[in-house]
Design a protein around this nucleic acid. Structure first.
Lengths: 264, 264
DNA sequence: CTTGACCTTGACGCTGGGTCAACCCTCCAT
DNA sequence: ATGGAGGGTTGACCCAGCGTCAAGGTCAAG
């Protein structure tokens, strides 16, 4: 006959776990010797080993109890299910692992490779690290928001970088973080942006549905505006010229300028 | 600005989880509007998404906090560690999966293939299912006890089945479960066993260290004795003839018969 | 007889939140 | 103005699966 610690040792569990199984009725309480110690036989070892085999597979103890009480066919069905869950869990962990790999490889966290490549390209253009971090944070949000279309969105962005005006724009914006409050180059930025926007409108690239909802666009815009004092000024200048927004810029018809803003 | 539920939706978590992160200091408490609602900005979304990326990898929230507060090199080291843990966990789950596969394939739980094969062979010899279950339970314990040498132990057992006497023995033992209390065939069983043992001793196969400790052997023996009334009688007969034990049978020198048993 | 290793029950702690409860705010339709 | 829906707020208790004391009773050895 065995004591509780011997039983536990045979099955590779702790004494505390065995007592826990008794309390929840998973392992029947055995007899006691004259001093109150529990005395176990080999059947208890076998039952305990079975319990652990299932519990190690992640099966909740309540379900373990059901399964061990069930007939062979129900048991087999249950094991099938458990195996499916295990497969799913393994795949989930593998996905997580590749996410972490990308994370460690460079960009901090949760970004698809396409975005990482895009940010690397900005770096290659000489854009400052501080600015890239802002971009990165915006892309983290976009990737979380529209995970399915992030690749096509970023592909369009990459194409835009083929335009020398766009490259110029980024190099100016990057440096703008250190400009004095009323630097005249903000106007230069606005000029470049307007040229780009006009071309985009002509190419029919404005107004296409990007799958990002309006409120989310507002959120990105307000983050941008808060990031630098120049940003607000820039948006104001563009608005005077009939453009609205930032993340998604739209042409505002001249007759509606400043007329459809809410009173607040 | 975002409300808590909007923040939660962007990051794909529940409102309750966000509040939990506030309480444990993982996500800083944001400002409130005049009615006491929390108001979040995009930075909170980014931080929350990062938290989830790590938490999904199974990192405890306390560690997530450390990592997000740490510098880049410490962060990278931490991610390395996490990845190692993930790899280990994936392998553990795969092992569990193959254990479950064997389980579903036939024998109930936690037995290596070699033992399953052995039990199948017993079945093929016409041994009753009830008896096989007893054998199986014993092997479950042995496999738990000496997992490294189980294959060699079982290989020896399989070889023994090539002996027609051993086959005869099993077929008798299997049927013995239904014998009346004082069936004379028990003596026949004892005869066969003695023949087998004598041959084993001559072949030098007795006394070899099997790596199983004495106490464990006692446990297996007592289980066997309790399994049937004939078992005790069988052991008694063999003991009269100078053999002791069951799981591991030894020759007892004639002059020491009944002299070294404890008085109890 | 002491010592140290076990045994007993009972109670609280831990993670990562879920799930009420009880109440306040805001907005919209009536 | 009023009521109801659908947000938000704090607080408190609940879950698994044990770990970890606490406060004792027992056992075997020296």
């Amino acid at each position: 006959m065995l004591t509780i610690s011997q039983l536990a040792a045979y099955a590779g569990v702790t004494v505390r776990a065995v007592r826990h199984y008794h309390r929840i009725g998973l392992l029947p309480e055995p007899g006691r010797d004259r001093s109150g110690y529990r005395t176990y036989d080999a059947a208890a070892v076998v039952r305990l080993i079975r319990i652990r085999a299932l519990a190690d597979a992640g099966v909740p103890l309540a379900r373990v109890q059901e399964l061990l009480a069930a007939g062979p066919e129900e048991f087999a069905d249950g094991v099938q299910e458990i195996d499916k869950a295990l497969r799913a869990e393994i795949r989930r962990l593998q996905d997580t692992r590749s996410r972490l790999a990308r994370l460690a490889a460079g960009e901090h966290l949760a970004l698809p490779q396409s975005v990482v490549d895009y940010l690397d390209r900005l770096r290659g253009l000489g854009v400052e690290e501080r600015y890239i971090e802002m971009e990165r944070d915006a892309w983290i949000m976009i990737a979380a928001q529209v995970p399915h279309s992030i690749d096509s969105v970023i592909a369009k962005k990459r194409e835009e970088l083929d335009d020398p005006d766009m490259v110029k724009l980024y190099s100016l914006l990057s440096g703008a973080l250190d400009w004095p409050a009323d630097d005249p180059r903000v106007v230069e930025v606005a000029d470049i942006m307007e040229r780009l926007m006009v071309r985009a409108v002509e190419a029919g690239e404005v107004g296409a549905d990007d799958g990002i909802d309006d409120q989310f666009v507002d959120l990105l815009d307000s983050t941008m505006v808060e990031s630098s004092p120049h940003a607000a000024r820039l948006v104001a200048i563009l608005e005077e010229r009939g453009w609205r927004g930032w993340t998604r810029i739209e042409r505002v018809p001249a007759d509606r300028l400043n007329t459809d803003l809410p009173p607040s």
